[in-house]
Simulated assay, not measured.
Amino acid sequence: MTIHPERPTTGSDRVHLGTDGAIGYRPLPRKTIRDVLESDRRREVIRCALATDEPISVRTLVGRLADAEHDPTVGTTIHRLRQRIHTSLCRTHLPLLEDHDIVRFDRVRNLVGPATNCSAFESLLEFDSLERPIAARLK
C-alpha cells in the first residue's frame, strides 16, 4: 500500500486550531476551514457541540436543523425533511467533521461531542450573523 502525503504547505496556508496540545492535534489548512464553514448544517453542528458539556444526540441535531430549515410553503413534510437531514448528517457532515477532529461521532450511541479542533471555531462562528461571509474573512 502506498501512502501519498498531502501537498507541501507553507505556514501561511495553515491556521492553527486547537491549543490544548492533545495528541493527534494537527493544524487545519485555511481551505479546509472554509469548506467546513461553507455548510449551514456543519456550522450548526459545531455550534451545538460548543454549547453543551455533554454529547448531543443526532436526533436532537436533526430536530434543530429541521426546525431551522422547514418552510411550510414548500411541499416537503417535516418528517421527510428530518429524514434528509439525518441522512446528510450521518453520511456527509459528521464524518467530515470527525475526520478533521472537530467533533466526535459515536455511531453506536448516535452521539456527537466536541473534539480537539472544535473550540477554535467558536471565534469564527461568533460573527456568523454579520453580512460578510465567513469564507471572505478567512482569505
Rank of each mutant, 00 (worst) to 15 (best):
I3D: 10
V62H: 02
Y25C: 11
E6A: 15
Y25K: 08
H100S: 05
G24I: 06
P5Q: 14
T9D: 10
R30C: 08
G11S: 10
K31Y: 10
A51V: 07
E122I: 00
G113N: 02
I33E: 05
R137S: 11
A22C: 06
T19Y: 10
D71R: 14
R34W: 08
E38A: 14
N110C: 00
C48T: 13
E6Y: 09
L61D: 01
P8Q: 14
R84C: 00
T87P: 03
C48L: 10
I78R: 12
S12C: 03
Q83L: 08
I102G: 02
R43I: 04
R59C: 00
G21I: 05
H70K: 07
V45Y: 00
T19K: 14
G113L: 01
I56P: 02
R41N: 08
C118S: 08
L111P: 05
A66G: 00
T32F: 04
I23K: 12
T87K: 15
T73F: 09
A51H: 03
I78M: 12
D128P: 00
I78H: 06
L94H: 00
L28I: 08
S123L: 04
P8H: 14
Q83T: 15
F121I: 07
L138V: 12
E122P: 01
G24W: 08
R82P: 02
H100F: 14
S119D: 11
R84F: 00
C118F: 10
L96M: 13
L89H: 00
E44Y: 06
R82S: 12
D128E: 14
V103D: 02
S39F: 00
L138Q: 04
D99A: 12
R42V: 05
L97G: 03
L50K: 05
G24F: 13
L94I: 05
T116F: 03
T116K: 05
V45S: 02
P95T: 03
P29L: 11
D35T: 12
R82N: 12
R137Q: 06
K31G: 12
A66N: 07
A115H: 04
S119H: 12
K31H: 08
D106C: 04
S88W: 02
H100T: 07
S57L: 04
R82T: 02
K139C: 09
F105P: 00
G75E: 13
T10E: 15
G63H: 10
D71P: 05
D99F: 01
L65S: 00
C90R: 04
A120Y: 05
L138D: 07
D71W: 06
L81K: 08
F121C: 07
D101H: 10
T77V: 09
L81C: 09
P8F: 15
A120M: 03
V108G: 01
R47T: 08
R80T: 13
P27E: 14
R91A: 07
P95F: 05
A51Q: 11
S12I: 14
K139A: 13
